[in-house]
């Protein structure tokens, strides 16, 4: 019994707090309100796009979801670097949470993009550089999950996952910048500089109206920060609780 509590000093503190922490509750409420407000802004407040019609509204979720995936996966890199330096298990939990939330948000980004592309590009999928690089990115993080499952030694698993999580971020950066360096992509770039001339299909002006700008300004912080941070917090908490269950099981058996 003493061996268990000695072996997991980090979880003993967690073990006392069985309920949901106050901060997490506040974040959850904020996220729900934020998502609802974002949906209202996207579906109700912003006016219909002249060229694309209602389908353009998907953009207000589409792009912020990718930024959210970026934030979550950046959490993986930070978790990985800090784990390798400090060997504190909490950083590994952050890295794992980042990958799982990142995959989910990247899939939201990919699927909303496909739904939009069906009427605008007249196809669900095309081997455009940006689409290809994002598919590769998601597969890379799927490989991260596979890698973790393939290693039994706990310490080794955390170490290798940290290394792979850092290396895998290269694919995220490539996905982010590819529309800015490859002139042959048809994926529109609506914010920031671009080398595109007239190849992009389905672009629109963000600065065109206040409705577009306001809808983006509400959805952006919700999907880019609130959703990933809240989900990652839940995921880390789940990991802590699973650890505690494990410790309690050991205690009950001994």
């Amino acid at each position: 019994m003493s061996a268990v509590s000695k072996a997991t000093p980090a979880t003993t503190e967690q073990a006392q707090t069985t309920g949901r922490p106050l901060g997490l509750t506040i974040l959850t409420v904020l996220t729900i309100i934020g998502v609802a407000a974002g949906l209202y802004m996207a579906l109700g407040y912003a006016r219909t796009d002249l060229e694309q019609g209602d389908v353009q509204r998907i953009f207000y979720i589409h792009m912020p979801a990718f930024i959210g995936a970026f934030v979550a996966l950046l959490g993986t890199v930070i978790g990985g670097i800090m784990y390798l330096r400090t060997r504190n298990v909490k950083w590994d939990k952050l890295a794992l949470a980042g990958v799982e939330v990142g995959i989910a948000l990247a899939l939201i980004n990919l699927i909303t993009g496909m739904v939009w592309a069906r009427p605008i590009w007249n196809t669900w999928w095309t081997w455009d550089p940006r689409l290809t690089s994002e598919a590769i990115m998601i597969l890379t993080y799927a490989a991260y999950v596979m890698l973790r499952q393939g290693i039994e030694n706990v310490e080794q698993r955390r170490r290798f996952a940290a290394v792979y999580g850092i290396l895998a971020f290269v694919t995220v950066i490539i996905t982010l910048v590819i529309t800015r360096v490859r002139p042959d992509t048809i994926h529109p770039v609506v914010i920031g500089p671009s080398v595109q001339t007239d190849t992009a299909q389905g672009a629109f002006e963000v600065a065109a109206s206040t409705g577009v700008r306001m809808a983006l300004m509400v959805n952006m912080p919700v999907w880019a920060l609130l959703v990933p941070v809240t989900l990652m917090w839940y995921r880390i908490r789940l990991e802590n609780l699973a650890e505690r269950v494990q410790a309690l099981k050991l205690k009950a058996l001994s």
Partner: peptide, 9 residues
């Protein structure tokens, strides 16, 4: 599985 996506660029 782990090498292909990373080596793809």
């Amino acid at each position: 599985i782990v090498m292909m996506p990373i080596a793809l660029p």
